[in-house]
């Protein structure tokens, strides 16, 4: 790791202000992804602002019948929360499909959302990667890209977002609450947090420098059953090949794009009375697999149809 200075934030406002003022500053909460990347010098912050002990870990009901989850809440705490398990089971299921119990105990909600890709070429610093060095090229594009995106990728980047939790949040129409360095709060859908890669895959999120995620807010759950299904090469403690979150008629896909992929075309078809298989087929008309990851198209088709059936059975 490069040397860095460290401070423990005293308030969210102070943290955001300090982050904007200090060159190379980054927030750290659980740190399970940031420290991983700092050890490889893929991340090289000059200053860390520890927000893990700010009073941002509460999980509490909102006035409109939803749930507000503090950004510093651990993944485990969210998955175990009684309200989450009763009303948003897809979120609990998605969280426990990710990482390991140890990682989930440490990782925060905001950190989970902001985790960076697990593309092996992003991690191998001897290879060109447009995320690590804009303009360097993408080693994955012609490489061993079995786990690459099938939606929304570009020539500059075919990496996927690998969060499980985020897929459920997108399916649930969750919103991010954030605080700008000037102290301005704002709120926007989780589905708009992550960018598609385009020509600038190093620009990954909607957040401006110094902006701090303070919470994730869930609206009341949609009518209908919920489920999360993930397929991976190992039974546990492994990134996915594809995943799907279903909440009533709302469907999001994981590990298929640079962001959690809201399957809007499938949702539209479902709403119009299509069968689950027909609906996901509609979504997959927009898929652009690269060869080695062609299997993701039928995998997503089958997995999603099965998950929608499951969810309907639970509804």
């Amino acid at each position: 790791m490069r040397p860095f200075t460290y401070e423990r934030a005293t308030s969210a406002e102070a943290a955001a202000r300090a982050a904007a003022l200090t060159p190379g500053a980054r927030f750290i909460a659980g740190g399970t992804n940031l420290i991983d990347l700092m050890k490889l010098e893929i991340e090289t912050p000059a200053h860390l602002i520890d927000v893990s002990r700010l009073p941002m870990a509460a999980i509490e009901p909102t006035a409109v019948g939803g749930l507000r989850i503090g950004a510093a809440a651990s993944n485990s705490a969210v998955a175990a929360d009684a309200t989450v398990r009763a009303r948003y089971p897809v979120l609990s299921e998605a969280i426990v499909a990710g990482g390991s119990p140890q990682l989930r105990n440490k990782a925060s909600v905001a950190g989970n959302l902001l985790q960076r890709t697990r593309c092996p070429y992003f991690y191998d610093t001897t290879k060109p990667c447009n995320k690590r060095r804009p303009g360097a090229g993408c080693a994955a594009l012609e490489g061993l890209n079995r786990n690459a995106a099938i939606f929304g990728a570009s020539r500059a980047c075919i990496a996927t977002h690998t969060s499980d939790m985020a897929v459920a949040l997108v399916a649930l129409d969750a919103r991010v609450e954030a605080l700008s360095p000037s102290g301005q709060p704002r709120s926007f859908p989780v589905s708009e947090l992550h960018y598609l890669p385009g020509d600038t895959p190093h620009l990954e999120t909607e957040l401006i420098p110094g902006e701090l995620i303070t919470a994730v807010v869930l609206p009341p759950p949609p009518a209908g059953g919920q489920t999360y299904r993930k397929v991976r090469d190992r039974a546990s403690y492994a990134g996915g090949l594809a995943s799907v979150a279903v909440a009533g008629g709302q469907v999001a896909l994981g590990m298929v794009a640079h962001k959690p992929w809201r399957a809007s075309a499938a949702e539209g078809a479902l709403a119009a009375g299509a069968s689950p298989a027909e609906a996901i087929a509609r979504e997959l008309e927009g898929a652009s697999p690269l060869g080695r990851n062609d299997f993701k198209v039928p995998l997503v088709a089958r997995l999603t149809a099965a998950a929608i059936d499951d969810a309907n059975g639970r509804g």
Partner: peptide
């Protein structure tokens, strides 16, 4: 070079397997 360069990528079995 090998594609898998750590234990997140090279999949030795875990308990659940």
């Amino acid at each position: 070079s090998f594609l898998n360069q750590d234990l997140a990528q090279y999949l030795v079995p875990v308990q659940a397997d």
